[in-house]
Design a protein around this nucleic acid. Structure first.
Lengths: 295, 295
DNA sequence: CTCCCCGAAAAGATATCATCTTTAGTATCT
DNA sequence: AGATACTAAAGATGATATCTTTTCGGGGAG
């Protein structure tokens, strides 16, 4: 049944032909699992491809083959290859396209996907809002410190722009919260450390976007002032000062959140303002107050 | 140490019957996607279950059903249910068991799985060792600070024990590195912040364990002395001091790693370096210098 | 240049067999 | 009679084969 998998079009789509040709020797099942050491067939394919990635025999953008290709290459059925691709896709390793010229390719880094993975894990672990905000403090303090040391002129200009955008949003709670979050992420990006960016985005992804009730215009103006000072410290390359101010800033956010949570709890069920559509049967002592994206 | 907030042991069979019954009404496809808003059928099932998790209609340990159950409930074929379960499994949301009484259940938080997901993303993004160590600094500094504030007597005793174990391992590089890593993780656990623990474990999972050439007994004794001081500061509840010392400690680790990397490069024989076509970020730096678990 | 058609490939469905795992039940030994 | 060990059945995933449907891309006709 296998209908000539190799060498479809030697001339056109060079990247694809080249990638597929390379894979034929790079990705072939090495050692030919004799008495199958591990679990399922699909998990072996996943392990094989992941190892190839870590060994740099695969790089983002490389063509992995179609379902049929992989099935032929690993001598399994198409469903097994499909299972493996589903897993690789969920892990963010593979991107799959339908239709002619489609197939699986090694994905580029996908921050959003990873952020969701972290969110899931934190949810499953059942962490509290305080734990998340504290971790945010860890990440953002260092981000501010490094941004002060390393931000380029272009990045400083961008932060200035983000700050100006946020100022215009004061008054609109949702919009200001978003602008505020973008400013914080901009600082993380200016740190030239992508790990910090990923961690920060993840943590801000955990709490679903919600209304921020204590974010009055007065509070927003105070936050804006702090952000202005923060940017000034970064422009002065005062890494210690930026770090301290950010520390204080996030501590304040934490305190406001805790207060908000407590007031909500004590206020009880007076006005049915919570847009939660169903009262959770499980939630007697919900440890997880929904918190907002940034400020 | 706090693990699994609710649901200690749901006594299996009851949990299953009850869970399945509950799901019948909790997890049924709501709204009946008329003209399906997006994506494949399996991705809708995944989204449905993930949303149920974030909405707290599902909790770790809940029974999700067998492949056939899901196929029936969502009115799709078993293949689609299977695809969805593959994805949920890869995302760490579901655990799947074979055999009688098997099926899919909502997973407990799985740090190892998540750590690997982070490793994959960092690999795909192509981050440098420096970025990782810097992020480690962010996490560990706050961990030390919070540990000083919150560590219980039992946790302080455990740290003392871990330190003693490490001292006995001086001389054996691999064993000392492991013991050292355990001490650092112990500090993170003493912070009572599971997010920090997850982040730290993830970052230490990224670089695969390797030899640490500059970890001579002399260096190890110096590290041990720093650790001893760190523990003393934690026992004195000097959070600021603990944070500063940890900061300095990780900076030193970073410096040692960079020096190691540089010496390796200058002494290095060739390198099939240029084979990588996409020149990674930030100039030259060899993107993945193998770095060690902890010290 | 646009529209339509065709082919490649994933998405989905159905049927069937293989394998694993738990449970129950029986037989045997003490 | 009771405890242990072996065996069989049931329930579930794992895997294969063979289809139809949907989606995407490209090339050709108007």
């Amino acid at each position: 049944m296998p209908q000539s998998p190799p060498s479809p079009h030697p001339s056109r789509s060079s990247s694809r032909a080249e990638g597929a040709a390379g894979l034929a020797r790079e990705l072939a099942p090495r050692g030919a699992f004799p008495a199958g050491r591990g679990g399922s067939l699909s998990s072996r394919i996943v392990a094989e491809i992941r190892d190839a990635l870590f060994d740099k025999r695969l790089a983002p953008g490389d063509f992995l083959g179609t379902e049929s290709d992989l099935a032929t290459r690993f001598e399994v059925s198409r469903i097994v290859a499909r299972d493996a691709l589903r897993t690789l896709q969920a892990l963010g390793i593979a991107e799959i396209r339908m239709g002619k010229g489609g197939g699986a390719r090694v994905a580029r880094g996908n921050t959003a996907l990873f952020a969701e993975a972290l969110a899931v894990q934190l949810e499953l672990t059942g962490v509290s809002a305080e734990e998340i905000v504290d971790a945010q403090r860890a990440v953002e303090c260092l981000a501010a410190e490094l941004a002060a040391e390393r931000a380029t002129a272009a990045e400083r200009a961008r932060l200035t722009e983000l700050l100006a955008v946020a100022e215009r949003r004061i008054g609109d709670r949702a919009a200001y919260t978003r602008a505020c979050r973008d400013f914080h992420i901009g600082i993380a990006e200016s740190s030239h450390n992508r790990v910090l960016v990923v961690q920060l985005v993840s943590l801000q992804h955990v709490p679903w976007p919600k209304e921020n009730r204590t974010l009055t215009p007065k509070v927003a103006r105070h936050i804006h002032e702090v952000h202005r000072q923060l940017l000034a410290l970064i422009e002065q390359r005062d890494s210690g000062g930026a770090r301290r101010l950010m520390d204080e800033h996030v501590r304040m956010i934490r305190a406001r959140r805790s207060a908000e949570r407590d007031s909500k709890r004590s206020a009880g069920r007076d006005g049915r303002e919570s847009a939660d559509r169903d009262d959770r049967q499980r939630g007697t002592s919900d440890p997880r107050t929904p918190i907002e994206a940034c400020c």
